[in-house]
Design a binder for these strands. Sequence first.
DNA 1: GTCTATATCCCGATAGAC
DNA 2: GTCTATCGGGATATAGAC
Lengths: 188, 188
Amino acid sequence: MIDAAIDLLAERGVAGFSLAEVSRRLGVTAGAPYNHFADREELLAAVGVRAFEALTAAIGEGAAQASVPAEQLAASARSYIEFAAGHRPLFDALFGGGLDKGRHPELAAAAQLLAEAFIGPARTICDGDKGAAEELALAVAATAHGHATFLLFDEASGPDADAVAVAAARAARVTLALVAAARPLSPG
Amino acid sequence: MIDAAIDLLAERGVAGFSLAEVSRRLGVTAGAPYNHFADREELLAAVGVRAFEALTAAIGEGAAQASVPAEQLAASARSYIEFAAGHRPLFDALFGGGLDKGRHPELAAAAQLLAEAFIGPARTICDGDKGAAEELALAVAATAHGHATFLLFDEASGPDADAVAVAAARAARVTLALVAAARPLSPG
DNA sequence: GTCTATATCCCGATAGAC
DNA sequence: GTCTATCGGGATATAGAC
């Protein structure tokens, strides 16, 4: 059922997402989902958890292709943007404001895992300084998110492959600059 | 009428935004707005233009409080985050995906003005190199946007003033790092 | 040219059958 | 414990009156 919800969200976006339509696709009547989820918001949260997991996985795969922490972060930023471009409705759903982290702890946990995907390499870079590592990780994630958002805004209808590549490259470049700034004493 | 729409958006968010409710507040019937706007999306776009203008103005006011370009950019980043925290529904509406820039050129123009608010100081910093200036501006804006988004996500219900200040300070710090990276040859 | 009245559709949620 | 049938509410958009 969550799968059907994801498909629907991917097709119609968060606005066109309704329990009734999910039911229709599953071949049941409109009220059936209420036995499995309290309301529309709860199903959305479940989808959000899946989306966070998918994004985290994409980040991880990107990072795995590099060996040095700085490049891992840069690859993560690239993956972040590619994910946003490739799974736009899910991405919108995550940060579009429809989800309330406070009411759904599982969502907070999934978001935390995403954050840690950035914190891992950052910790190595800022070896020892935990606060600096978290700030670097946040800065890199924020950079990736911002570039992703602006890309989606510019390419409102259909993401152009070239534009995605440009945005990803930019974010990676900025990431390396942030890494360099975070360890001014190490060899660049 | 746009004013009423803005008020409604500010109260109920983009999801609870409907032409019917706007009509109700104006004391007219549900179909009246269709003589002034083709459909719901068109009114939303008009509100989006206003929101972009307000954000651009806030950025400008922030920048005006500083004299040196690097500090102007940092102040702009702070203002960006404070605007997001202070006018959350409008901010969500801008980047929540409900707006199609392609179908509403006025929206693209308003977004362009916002971009230029960042490009101005960046141009001074990257004196001469236009490409570098635009890239720096984009990086700063992306950083501000990312920090703002994560702040709103964390503080889902009611933005805490301290959290806003922390996020704003972080974004400003990152901005200064980006400026420093953009002109490695100038005195820091 | 501006609004009212109306038609049509769809959604969320509850109460009750299998 | 899972679904069907249904109620009530509200939104979009059109057709027609002032």
